[in-house]
């Protein structure tokens, strides 16, 4: 599972960085989205991967922390997802404004002159 997880993060990051460096604004926004998925998975992984363990502590019995998965990274991921979602939406608006004002979807606001 660690291998699949690592590969997923790696592939998402690679594709994200590549798209981020492309000249079209739409590619940039998709690249940023992929990067945010990669980062969210990465945060999740930093709490160590566990299968089949609940994240929330029960208060009824004596607690053995080894039986539970770390809940904190999940809370962090949730926050990060919300924030990156909002930022992507905002970026989308700017992207559309730029398309409307400059008449091109190039990130520099003008086409390359060759």
């Amino acid at each position: 599972m660690e291998l699949i997880f690592a590969l997923a993060v790696g592939i998402l990051t690679t594709s994200g960085v590549w798209l981020l460096l492309r000249p079209r604004t739409f590619q940039v926004i998709i690249g940023l989205s992929l990067l945010s998925y990669a980062v969210n998975l990465f945060i999740f992984g930093m709490g160590r991967l566990r299968v089949g363990a609940p994240p929330v502590l029960e208060t009824t019995e004596a607690i053995d922390p080894a039986l539970f998965t770390d809940p904190l990274p999940q809370a962090l991921v949730l926050t990060a997802i919300v924030i990156s979602f909002a930022m992507t939406a905002l970026f989308l608006v700017v992207l559309l404004a730029s398309r409307g004002l400059t008449g091109t979807d190039h990130v520099d606001g003008r086409e390359d002159v060759r």
Partner: peptide, 18 residues
């Protein structure tokens, strides 16, 4: 135009920074 163009770079850079 100038603000939107600068803003586009600014937002992309800062999102990556985040």
């Amino acid at each position: 135009v100038m603000r939107v163009r600068a803003g586009l770079t600014y937002i992309a850079i800062n999102l990556t920074g985040s």
